[in-house]
Nucleic acid binder design. Structure first.
Length: 141
DNA sequence: GCCAACGTTGGC
DNA sequence: GCCAACGTTGGC
């Protein structure tokens, strides 16, 4: 079964990776952008997620996984938005900053850089692997 | 705090 | 259907 990879953004003062670790699981709601929503809908249980802190930190801090595929976002009654279930896998041994991503040849084409305002974006297997490698994070794949 | 990028809205 | 105005995101 092919597994896909994604990057999800959150401002750490709103919902941080450590909060997700505490919660054990959460619903990824509040997405109000069509393209981001379509990416949520393309997620399958078991897909892996890079958890990025925007504004504060500007770095990828952890790995999470999809525990539940897309369902209607109850926080948007009458509108057609989606949520997925997300659970933490592991924090990165070393966080990967935006600066590092920009400097790293293998990561220069990341959608994160090309589409800076998109809050849910696809990540290639090669990019995902590179992030794990650079962050010295083991036991995920 | 500023501003570039860019998605959305609304007038025509 | 075009496009100006406006609002939001997110880097700096």
């Amino acid at each position: 079964m092919p597994q896909n990879y994604w990057l999800i953004k959150s401002e750490p003062n709103k919902y941080s990776f450590s909060q997700l670790v505490k919660d054990k699981q959460t619903q990824w709601d509040g997405v109000r952008n069509f393209e981001a929503r379509n990416n949520l809908r393309a997620m399958k249980v078991g897909d892996l997620l890079l958890f990025y802190h925007s504004n504060i930190g500007k770095e990828i801090v952890g790995i999470a996984r999809v525990t539940k595929s897309a369902s209607p976002d109850q926080t948007a009654k009458g509108e057609d938005w989606s949520v997925v279930g997300v659970a933490p896998v592991t924090p990165l041994t070393r966080a990967i900053t935006l600066e590092t991503i920009k400097k790293t040849q293998a990561l220069k084409e990341m959608v994160l850089l090309r589409r800076s305002r998109l809050s849910v974006s696809p990540v290639t297997a090669a990019e995902f692997k590179k992030i794990l490698e650079l962050s010295e994070t083991k036991g995920v794949l």
